[in-house]
Amino acid sequence: MNAMNFLQAAFAGRRLATLGFLWLVMIAVAAIAAPLIAPFDPLEIDPVGRLAKPGWPNLFGTDHFGRDTFSRAVYGARMTVIIGTGSVVVALLAGGLIGMVSAYFTKLGHFLMRGVDVLMAFPALLMALVLITLLERSVFNTILVIGIVYATTTARILFGMTLKLKGEVFVDAAVCSGVGNLSILFRHILPNLVSPLLVQASFIFAFAQLQAAALDFLGLGLPPEVPSWGNMLSEERIYVTRAPWLLIYPGILIVLSVFSMNLVGDALRDSIDPRFKDDISGV
């Protein structure tokens, strides 16, 4: 089954999930073509036109520095994609590797998975807070922290799935052919995990947004000058009564995006191998 067929099967007859998918495509387009779409420089300060109401030319109004909120929102999409993709890559690489290796080499696994269990005992946000206070505020560090937080759940999930696949007859057959351990793990088991990994990635992508927004809101995420939806909420929260649109627009964007990602994740999950359905239940 190739990826195109998989997507087609996943979205067939699911209107809401398809809408979610289209919304995400729009976000992606906005992220890539941000300089073309945004009418103003998102960092340009205009002390005269601050806190303008939504209208023309400032579609979403301006913030307390007079920066164009619509342009910032468009550039915020870019941050959304970068943070999401980065966290997914970190979480899947770190968590996936730990989970797979732990399931295959059981002695090492005992050791590694107990470590994962300890980390999982902390609430995700708390752990992110602890880690971020040790590091500087930067895009890279935000990605790293969120990635590590979700690496734990990913490790758990991949541990379970690898364990199941390890008991499959085709793995026994490969062993009998003389295939080495690493080759079994990466050439025989990993390809069978691709579609569940895709599902897991979509959930991490969604939760990374919430996590990033929360960190930004607490002033611990991205540096304040970076236009992200979380930063926009954080900076303008004191103007909630005077200029509520400054919070409404980024708020709606976050909610819609996270909701869409979850819808897409659900759709993908329902069409993957039924054996793995129970393993993935969000992060």
């Binding site: 007859v169 085709f170 026994d172 057959a173 050439r187 390809p191 069978n192 691709v194």
Partner: peptide, 12 residues
């Protein structure tokens, strides 16, 4: 092996 459906890796 016994089970012809399980003994071949579906992805290879």
């Amino acid at each position: 092996f016994q089970d012809p459906f399980a003994s071949l890796n579906p992805r290879l």
